[in-house]
Design a protein around this nucleic acid. Structure first.
Lengths: 239, 239
DNA sequence: GCACATCTGTACTGGCAGGTACGGAAGTCA
DNA sequence: TGACTTCCGTACCTGCCAGTACAGATGTGC
């Protein structure tokens, strides 16, 4: 237990006086019973890189090249750390990819979860779609969506990663479906609306836009699509 | 010139008395000046496999695993030929992939071109979408679209393949755009319709369905999406 | 200062990737 | 029959892949 690759990184701003620190995954229980002071810096040589920045850079590589296309040499070069540091800090390639997926969900793709908080279903899907279009066409971001192009079709060695991405995509769709169900009970969508089909429709638009972005579609082109797609949405456009 | 990997295969049913035969790419010019008889079987040991069937099997592997995920060992095993036979018959991996793409366009994806022949724009997009949904959910086919998942994001060594797929996707979209332009002049679509946006919209639906299929969507689920998607189509439903 | 803990960089491993050399087999043609 | 052409199968090549051993560096606590 507490294998090094299961460590959770805590950035200095949280509670540590300097540098970054590694804490075991039992960190939560640890926090309950220990005071801040006892969590102060451990002995040993300190980490010479910022794990968050390293994850940022790893995200860029995986996003651009996909799971299989990103070699460890690509990754270590971009992350500016050596191979053993990567393994000590993040575990193997697959483990790093999982951490990168979380990093992506909390960063570039954070608009997805935020969109569900909008008051009406119309506002939810508009924020979801336009937010995605912006993310897909944002300067500095690789073109496309990591959930789609991380591992859509791949060799058998990457199969678990492929399945993980499928479940993340379906999970996002399920969250939207729940939100649309709520909209029906709230009278925000007509009672005969089909939340499952509507959620799937939005998912398809998002995933299709992702492929289009990978083909070079611009922001205004993506927004033009959304305008068409929302014409069939069963509720009025927000002023 | 006439490198072995540039050969074009002619299936026996075309004009040869038996077996399959390799003909140089200068085949067209050759046909103009030579008679059928002069194209009869050459000397040498005959091919021990059917190149068409081998391409079928290679298609299955690339379709399922993508360009990078399909190793030469996967391919030769599925094609039931040895490595040197593959290289002699199809060139290197990239060349084989190009031939597989053609094979795909003429086979499983042939409905795309056929759909453009429909008399009205509505019929065109309906056949395009429902045909694609059927293809994506057909038993025996890998789930998804080769043009999308062949190489959406990949390492630099596969970059030319990625670009080739982009141009094939954009080519399909351009063909649809032309067809929709024609529909406007024919009064089949309103004069203020935007063929570029509409074609891009349909492309997004198709590509989104492809990702959904890769996530396990069923035929009826895909068809349900199309019903929603076509509600915003600017012309009446057929019949 | 010294024991201890942790991280870093170099250099390495076994295995598989794509690709090929070459001798022998299986045909045609005269 | 034998020269010639083409294909097949074994066995191999180089290079990169993910992953690791190990010695030295850099910190803490006493």
């Amino acid at each position: 237990m507490c294998e090094p690759w299961n460590r959770v990184y805590v950035s200095p701003a949280n509670f540590l006086p300097y540098g970054t620190k590694q804490v075991c995954k039992c960190y939560n229980a640890f926090m309950k019973s220990k005071t801040r002071k006892e969590l102060s810096r451990p002995t040993g040589r300190p980490l010479s890189f910022d794990p968050d920045k390293a994850l940022d850079r790893a995200l860029d590589v995986f996003w651009r090249k996909g799971y299989e296309g990103a070699s460890l040499s690509d990754l270590t070069k971009a992350m500016r750390i050596n191979r053993p540091s990567l393994y000590a800090a993040f575990g193997d390639k697959e483990n790093l990819f999982h951490k990168v997926l979380d990093h992506y969900a909390e960063g570039p793709a954070s608009h997805s979860r935020a969109a569900l908080q909008e008051p009406t279903s119309r506002a939810v899907v508009e924020r979801l779609l336009y937010g995605t279009a912006d993310m897909l066409s944002s300067d500095g971001n690789p073109r496309g969506c990591l959930w789609v192009q991380g591992a859509l079709a791949c060799g058998s060695s990457a199969d678990s990663v492929r399945k993980e991405l499928i479940s993340r995509r379906l999970g996002g769709e399920a969250a939207l479906r729940q939100r649309l169900k709520r909209a029906i009970t709230e009278g925000d969508l007509p009672p005969d609306a089909n939340p499952a089909s509507l959620a799937r429709y939005i998912a398809i638009i998002i995933q299709g836009m992702s492929v289009q972005a990978a083909s070079g579609a611009t922001r205004s082109q993506l927004r033009g699509i959304i305008d068409i797609a929302l014409e069939s949405w069963p509720s009025r456009r927000n002023t």
